[in-house]
Computed example of a mutant assay.
Amino acid sequence: MITYPYLNTRSKIGVTAPSSGVPSELHNLLRQSAARLEEKGYSLSFGETVWTQEKARSADAEKRAAEFMKMMDDESIEVIMPPWGGELLIEILDFLDFEKMKAKWVLGYSDTSALLLSITLKTGIATAHGTNFIDLRGEYWDETTAMWEKVLTTKREESVSQTSSLKYQEQWEHEKQSPCVFHLTHDTEWKTVSNKEEKLKGRLLGGCIDIIHHLAGTPYGDVKAFHETFADGESLVWYFENCDLNMTGLRRAFLHMKMAGWFKSCSGIMFGRSSSNTPVNGYGAEDVYEEISSELGIPIIYDIDCGHQPPQVTLINGAYAEVEVSGVKGVIKQYFK
Score class of each variant (00 low, 15 high):
M72D: 15
L184V: 12
G138Y: 04
C266G: 12
A260D: 01
D74F: 12
A216H: 08
N8Y: 13
S274A: 10
K70M: 12
L296C: 02
P219G: 01
E197A: 02
S43N: 09
E322R: 11
S24N: 09
E87I: 02
V160N: 00
L44V: 13
L255F: 07
S275W: 04
L250H: 11
Y239M: 07
P299E: 05
G233H: 13
V237F: 08
H214R: 10
E286T: 13
E158A: 15
T218H: 10
L116Q: 10
I332E: 04
A319H: 15
A146Q: 10
S161V: 09
G47D: 13
V22R: 08
S164V: 12
K150F: 00
L166T: 11
E48V: 05
D94S: 13
E241C: 03
E91W: 06
T52M: 08
F336N: 02
C208Q: 02
G130P: 05
V328S: 14
F230W: 10
S164E: 14
W262K: 04
V223P: 03
E175W: 12
S326R: 15
S276I: 00
W105Y: 08
G268E: 06
E286F: 09
E234S: 14
T144M: 07
L7K: 09
I332H: 02
W262S: 10
C306W: 01
V50L: 11
V22Y: 05
Q312L: 09
T49S: 13
E173F: 05
T49H: 07
G85P: 07
T188L: 12
E241S: 07
D287S: 09
T120Y: 02
G21D: 13
G330P: 11
G41K: 12
M81R: 12
L245Q: 06
T120V: 00
G207K: 01
W51T: 00
A260L: 01
N317K: 02
Q171I: 00
L26W: 14
I269T: 12
I92L: 06
E67F: 01
T3N: 13
A34Q: 15
I332L: 08
S274C: 06
H129V: 07
V79M: 08
L89P: 01
Y109M: 09
G297V: 05
I332N: 02
L117R: 03
V50W: 08
P299Q: 05
Q312M: 10
D111G: 02
E175P: 02
N195C: 07
Q169C: 01
E228K: 06
E87M: 04
G330C: 06
H129K: 01
E39R: 14
T52R: 15
T314D: 03
I134P: 00
F68M: 15
F68N: 11
V151A: 05
H308S: 05
G249Q: 09
E324L: 08
D111Q: 01
I134V: 11
A103R: 05
P83E: 14
D187F: 14
D305L: 03
L93R: 09
T185W: 05
L255H: 03
I301W: 07
S265Y: 14
P179G: 05
Y140V: 01
S161L: 07
D287H: 13
W148D: 05
E189A: 15
T120K: 02
Q177K: 06
H213P: 03
L296H: 04
Q334R: 05
Y302A: 07
K155F: 00
F271T: 03
K70W: 11
A126T: 02
T154S: 13
Y302D: 11
F230I: 01
W238E: 06
C180R: 06
S194V: 11
